[in-house]
């Protein structure tokens, strides 16, 4: 059974992101006119306002930019303590996420190489795959 997680923000563009995630494909929108990668998903490019885009496959590589450890519990689905990490993707965007349960905040350091992995998840939109990052090669 998939792990219940706090509900996703959903709109037609986010839905496309999660449809790729269903296939464990980590993609972000790339502007059809100026090529800016945007995250989170949105209707138009914030750089040139073009509505043209494609879903660009990403390498799933990045490095640690920052992290915190929650000691207060905000969500019933995330008992404290639990870390959150900001990963600067090789392609540029910053991706904020959690890590698989076996990793702690103390495993992280500045610019540590990180790689994509997937966790089982479920919310009121259904079961899905949640993209997260973990220390590379661990």
């Amino acid at each position: 059974m998939a792990t219940t997680r706090p509900v996703r923000v959903m709109d037609p563009f986010a839905r496309e992101f999660w449809e790729y995630a269903e296939k464990k494909e980590f993609r972000m929108q790339k502007c059809g006119e100026c090529n800016k990668l945007r995250w989170p998903a949105a209707a138009v490019c914030d750089k040139c306002l073009s509505a043209e885009y494609s879903w660009e496959p990403l390498s799933g590589k990045g490095q640690v930019l920052s992290w915190i450890v929650f000691h207060r519990q905000y969500f019933p689905e995330y008992p404290a303590p639990h870390p959150a990490v900001a990963v600067e993707l090789a392609e540029g965007p910053i991706f904020v996420c959690c890590m698989p349960d076996e990793f702690q905040g103390s495993d992280l350091s500045d610019a540590l190489p990180m790689e994509l992995t997937w966790l089982d998840a479920e919310d009121r939109f259904g079961e899905y795959h949640l993209p997260v990052f973990k220390p590379a090669g661990k």
């Binding site: 997680r5 706090p6 923000v9 920052s66 995330y78 904020v96 997260v132």
Partner: peptide
């Protein structure tokens, strides 16, 4: 949007965002 977008990953609160900024 950053206040709510990362809820599925357990990331929440303005305090969490500023704490991440301080860590940086």
């Amino acid at each position: 949007l950053s206040y709510v977008y990362y809820a599925p990953w357990g990331m929440t609160s303005q305090g969490g965002l500023y704490s991440m900024m301080f860590r940086r």
